[in-house]
Design a binder for these strands. Sequence first.
DNA 1: CTAGAAAAGGATATTAACATCCACATGTCG
DNA 2: CGACATGTGGATGTTAATATCCTTTTCTAG
Lengths: 150, 150
Amino acid sequence: MIFSQTVEYALRSVVWLASHTDSPQTVQQIAAATQVPSNYLAKVMNSLRRTGLVESRRGLGGGYILARAADLTVLDVVNTVDPIGRIVTCPLGLRSHGLNLCPLHKRLDEAIGLIEKSFVKTKIIDLVVQNDGAESICGDAPCAGPGGKS
Amino acid sequence: MIFSQTVEYALRSVVWLASHTDSPQTVQQIAAATQVPSNYLAKVMNSLRRTGLVESRRGLGGGYILARAADLTVLDVVNTVDPIGRIVTCPLGLRSHGLNLCPLHKRLDEAIGLIEKSFVKTKIIDLVVQNDGAESICGDAPCAGPGGKS
DNA sequence: CTAGAAAAGGATATTAACATCCACATGTCG
DNA sequence: CGACATGTGGATGTTAATATCCTTTTCTAG
């Protein structure tokens, strides 16, 4: 898999937060909605907090809310939990040749660059499903298709 | 890291094979040139053989040679050792909604698609460094830069 | 101040990726 | 045939990602 499980979890959760800005969302709520193990999600959310992507409040009525909601991108989230590492030096040790990567790594880095470019363009806010969204980040209706019945 | 270590190893080795078509290359030779643990490389080469990307010969004078050298692409290699998994159904189980991914996974899949597209366009043969290439897949001179001195 | 809700943080378990080692099969050379 | 070089395959070890559990801290309500 190209993207780690943790990236997947973090993105689901952030999208969920982006679509539930009325009140702080607890780890339990987010975990249930995004189908992520709650214990593990607690760790992920915590690291998102440390890098300032989300804010937390403890105690009753507490939970997580999105910080920088307006301009938060997919890349921000990805780079927090599992940074996209551009290839800047040849992984083969021989001589660090700076900008002169061999063709293979030049090509691989270009591919990574494509991902980076795609992710920096995508705002979290634009990934929010526009409906009641009670059940999942996908929402119910659109996920089941226009007909809504299987 | 976006690409697994195994992918990196496999690509280095295949590029090396593409640039050394005169005689079969042993695992030891490839391992030394590409700086990959030889024991592990043996496994990787074996799986490349099973999928037909390379051919092997045992015994003295044996080793690996590239099969399908002319049209082999980066994607072929990647998909052999660590397949690029397109997202075809929502990872959240609720209803398999086929082509109707939620915006998040639609976007992620598009990104994966970019990689796939980039990789299918890149032939291994085009990644070969055009010089003596005695030391590494990068070769010595180009890696150290035009000046050759650090 | 107490009770309870929730995040924070540490310790530990599980799993998969990565790596090593060894016995065996299969080839070449003389 | 014997000697040796090589890939093949199985067993096992190591490490990092993923996941679970428990205790502590911080908050709100009353």
